[in-house]
Design a binder for these strands. Structure first.
Lengths: 197, 197
DNA sequence: GTGAACATACCAACTGGTCGGTTCTGAATC
DNA sequence: GATTCAGAACCGACCAGTTGGTATGTTCAC
């Protein structure tokens, strides 16, 4: 009869909570273990450092997004539908993991140099897969080519990025509605504009 | 024959530089004064605290953006043209002050509670002016109403927000090109969609 | 009895900030 | 034009508090 199902998971939970509300730097290890109802000995048994605890958040989120992306691409749908699914998924996922997202975009520079590079590498992987999905749509003629791909890509990532700064899942707007609406906006701007006669 | 044109400005300069590259928490006061070629005495003569030095960055950026916005709105142009100008300006300004922007969106939680509220208040002011410009366009029938204004607004702010994470002024893309392209994308998604027969 | 899972006490290293002192500047006074 | 001197500008040694991390000890399942 364990009360705490898992101390490790509990430490992860309170870390995200504290990091997202106070920021990584303002959260002390002591605060974390107090909130989790354990002591430093427990924390340093499961995590090798405070940095490790932070990276763990990045690791989980990056793996999740990567899996989702590959699953969607593997379906082999047409470019427009693929893009729609990618976009909706990244919004839903980002709003579902909104606390993690807040930490993600705010505390990257608090990671060790090595781990910053690791995060950067894995984000680039995601970016590359997205870029090829974009290019396929351009070759098919459904996505515009009058604007550089890097700008179209940035315009895509901007929304999930900004999410944690304004969206609250407790409000009137559900995740699914939000995802559909932001996707609609993105796809609208992305489609090949009609040439005026 | 002064060598340092202005010690205060030099401290502001190196602070932005260090805060944007290392983050606020990882930058010590000692690092700042070393980089500026002065001592702590000088810093604490011009600034009351490290927090004060950070807030100063927010203050300058917020004031600037506010001025620009009001100047544009005061011209009394039609909603579409007004929106275009607002959008282009915020991109140009954000890319022009990209280091400040990086600090802005990353270190807000490092400010004192009081100053966080101040920043929040002034951002809301900007937001409100923007929202009314948006509403005017909706009433005029040029901006879509099928998507909540809060989502349209978030979609607007997402781009300047994300800018400091990817854009480099040293690359091929100039600020003006970037501004025109992102504005084109935003306006495209914002316009009232044509109803298919 | 052995190793994993924790608790407790503790420390070395930094940090932001202070404070008495020194130097510089410029206006007033003679 | 020399002297004075008040106050701004700045220096640098110092401190109290906090931090991440560790070393040692204890419990307990198998």
């Amino acid at each position: 009869m364990k009360k705490t199902v898992n101390i490790q998971e509990e430490l992860q939970r309170v870390s995200v909570e504290l990091f997202s509300t106070q920021g990584y730097a303002k959260t002390s290890v002591q605060q974390i273990v107090d909130a989790a109802g354990v002591t430093k000995g427990a924390l340093y048994h499961y995590f090798s450092s405070k940095d490790d605890l932070l990276f763990d958040i990045y690791d989980r989120l990056l793996s999740l997004q990567r899996e989702h992306l590959e699953e969607i691409v593997a379906r082999g749908l047409d470019p427009l539908e693929t893009m729609r699914l990618i976009c909706e998924d990244v919004i839903v996922t980002s709003s579902d993991w909104i606390r993690e997202g807040a930490v993600f975009f705010r505390s990257q520079h608090m990671l060790s140099e090595e781990r910053q590079r690791e995060v950067k590498r894995r984000r680039r992987e995601y970016n590359d897969v997205f870029a090829s999905a974009l290019a396929r749509g351009q070759q098919a003629g459904v996505f515009r080519t009058d604007i550089p791909a890097i700008v179209l890509t940035a315009n895509f990532f901007a929304n999930p990025h900004y999410l944690s700064h304004w969206y609250s899942p407790d409000g009137d707007l559900t995740r699914q509605e939000l995802a559909r609406q932001l996707t609609e906006l993105y796809i609208t701007s992305l489609r090949t504009p009609e040439v005026k006669a």
